[in-house]
Design a binder for these strands. Sequence first.
DNA 1: TCTGGGGTCCTAGGACCC
DNA 2: TCTGGGGTCCTAGGACCC
Length: 425
Amino acid sequence: MSPSVFALVDCNNFYASCEKLFRPDLADKPVVVLSNNDGCIIARSKEAKKLGIKMGLPVFQVRDLLQQHQIVAFSSNYALYADMSQRVMSTLENLAPRVEVYSIDEAFLDLTGLAYCEGLTEFGQHVRRTVQKDIGITVCVGIAPSKTLAKLANHAAKTWAKTGGVVDLTGKERQRKLLALLPVNEVWGIGGKLTKRLEQLGITTALQLADAAPDYIRQHFSVVVERTVRELNGESCIALEDVAPTKKQIISSRAFGERISDKQQMREAISEYISRACKKLRQEQQQAKYLTVFLRTSPFSDKDAPYSASKSCELESPSSDTRVFLASAMRLLDSLWLNGYRYAKAGVMLADFYDPGVHQPGLFDEPIVQKESDQKLMQLMDTLNSKHGKTLWFASQGTTQQWGMKRELLSPAYTTNWKELPLVK
DNA sequence: TCTGGGGTCCTAGGACCC
DNA sequence: TCTGGGGTCCTAGGACCC
């Protein structure tokens, strides 16, 4: 068997690039994309990065900077990004036999065996050119014998322009040279907390982590970090998953555009989240048995009294019927709700999934018969809503949704709505 | 005044069983 | 007077990712 070779393909400044694609007038201008409710900076074009706009900063803290440099800000437009992502991914699927879509802007490719056919760097360049030409999005490619090293190779390709956007890290010598240059927190799987603890042991560079004894790391940390050490040494421990595993939970939660202090409004919000979560559940063709509802005040405010709580319940049998979850969620909300707080965020979580029809009821439980008409009703609702936009919903979701998300800088739905198709004049 | 959303995996510790 | 030990299951919380 030939040794594994992975490529990590990662889109540059993905959300910002998507916005620019439809606004050629902004080609060389600094652009940022904001989180839901226009709260934080979540993507920056390279011009914006150069101006010192940091990732994750609250918008109100950089408002002056945005204005001063005439940085163009967009509300996040996930419909657009998801659509562009799909186009990039299907292009990649035409270029490699096995592809794992790792996130909205990244994919791992399996290049095992390819090493003997053609130069890996040349292949990387081919990927870059093709995605650029077909979709208009710039990507960088990192190639290595393990996913963790491929991540680092990609980081190098992004950081140093002279690499031409492609780094082949299959050679041991180049691996060690790069690892020595990178701080340990650049390694995939090593976050803030682990970085601190590693530093206490005198491990500050990626190379020092690679050279640590796996047993020693296992003792002081966990099997996860041990695996990272092995991966850094070129031993592939994390396989390519080209078939997406079924989900284990579905979350729908959102910070409110305006604080909620009124219970009726909170009922609307929870109803809305339940409805979204159940729709996702049906799309996954799953049923769930476990439901959690949570709500909280803002963790940043020092004026408001803090309150954060969650409660869960188990259904008698798995379901994907919005009405069943709505009823339980309202009961949970009743037991969570306290008057007198300014709630900033709430959400729901579905878990404990079953394929329809395989759940084993308890010996003394009434056999549960799922009525066909109930499933048809849900199906009808999903079909109507996906065809004609949101036309059918539950009264409890409310009609005005005053608490709804703020998106004041939203770009048009260029690719997913005929009415908003860009015009060439 | 204003600070995102959606996931996964692992571990520790308690409950319970024999 | 002396009061075990090992296994499993579950959950909460922590850490990480994009």
